[in-house]
Nucleic acid binder design. Sequence first.
DNA 1: GTTCCGCATGAATCGATAG
DNA 2: ACTATCGATTCATGCGGAA
Lengths: 290, 290
Amino acid sequence: MKNGNGNSVELFLGDCREELKRIDDDSVDLIVTSPPYADQRKQIYGGIHPDQYVEWFLPISEQLLRVLKPTGTFILNIKERVHEGERHTYVLELIMEMKKQGWLWTEEFIWHKKNCYPGKWPNRFRDAWERLLQFNKDRKFDMYQDEVRVPTGDWAKTRLKKLSDTDKIRDNSKVGSGFGKNISNWLNRDLAYPTNVLHLSTECSNRNHSATFPEALPEWFIKLFTKPGDVVLDPFMGSGTTVVVAQRLSRKAIGIDILSEYHEITLQRLDPVVEWTLFEPKVKYGNTKT
Amino acid sequence: MKNGNGNSVELFLGDCREELKRIDDDSVDLIVTSPPYADQRKQIYGGIHPDQYVEWFLPISEQLLRVLKPTGTFILNIKERVHEGERHTYVLELIMEMKKQGWLWTEEFIWHKKNCYPGKWPNRFRDAWERLLQFNKDRKFDMYQDEVRVPTGDWAKTRLKKLSDTDKIRDNSKVGSGFGKNISNWLNRDLAYPTNVLHLSTECSNRNHSATFPEALPEWFIKLFTKPGDVVLDPFMGSGTTVVVAQRLSRKAIGIDILSEYHEITLQRLDPVVEWTLFEPKVKYGNTKT
DNA sequence: GTTCCGCATGAATCGATAG
DNA sequence: ACTATCGATTCATGCGGAA
């Protein structure tokens, strides 16, 4: 019911360096992904050494550039590791190399992880933020800012508090008198556009998968950069958070991952209606077409 | 009275590219500065074009590398501008070039500016963060983490609020009764180490000076990376926030700025005891030695 | 002495207009 | 074509006067 038009889900099982080639040019509205960081998920992608990270990623970003619509956006969640006491520069290098490929580095959002990983080191504090790099193909791209407006700051809370004590009661008791409309217009002005700093907690309660991606993160970008029916791609699907949220928001989702375990987890999280489609006979696992 | 040992202040009037040469090798414990951003403050500093920013800054960072102690730290507050719809890459390039000079890029703190500049654009949100890049000469550097511990989560705020209503009054009225000590013990137990994300508002509506930094920013780094008597340097002093805070915390401060107006503002903000010293006869303005 | 409200003020960005 | 300037947009914060 809630998914009227087409919130289909396609999952590809395999290395995204190969699987991406099966996706059409200019066919994706939004890419949201969190690739394995250097030397993370060693057993999965063989553990890319920081010095080889850029070299490893560039063929992928080249494919992503190909499949993205000119009006589309690519959000890359990444953070450089500490390597021999320093922040490694592979993310900085990656940005500059992707620009050479033709990407525009439009913006860098900050994900402030409110409950970051605990720990203590002699010359370093806990790392509580990650980069959310925004890349585009063109200076003109789709952006639906009204979809992610947030309540205004403290002054609204405190200064409008009085209003709720008296006027809001009148508002309720005099429906249709025109008074309520004025109030709601006024209250509507208490929605402000957000900034490029996102405050979200990691979802530590998920026992199964190590993916700390909170659902609110892809949700925010999906609402901001796509409309229902648009195509959302995650080439490093992992436990499928981006795909699951895209489906829930009535977007078409494409997920790629090299591990079948992650496909199983994702399928369990997906809406059953679509799950049936995926399990149709003759549809090869990881190669689903609608 | 509060400044026992040696919180001297030396101010240099001139271009820091030249003035820095007058400072000894390995003599500074902490550099905290916020250089003019590319194409900003044109009327004041002449405006460095984004494409020439790295070239302009490298001779300065070379001098800073020379004057910093091996155990010292350099905190660079900077943020790249939007240029033709993209974030410019001069900050990324600067980091990599400074590494070639011999700097270690130890960490990147985020300054979350809660009250960022307003505005609305079709494809961009307000910019609410700036970089605080930490550079060092050596993997081993001085860091006094206990000096910047903060009260823990929300419950601390609420309990401390209650405290301030009742117990704090008692604390004030019963000095020496031991009650205050109990409170500070209790508070000490609820102190946590901070993260690499700092939430601070800019001080935009201060009457006298429009400080680029909130005082809390240099204060945090001075407490974290120096002890009383250490030397703190700001080669782009501006209205002198770093210098003023360093003096208040009984550190030796060195400030450099090219504009005499800023020197006057800084002198007005400094503790009068030192101001006298600075205005001693025969002490050339901007060339003060203790 | 509080609390409340009005107001000025920002390391901004885009698009249009002018030289 | 390429740069310089200007207006419009927008919101958290702290000060100061008022109730």
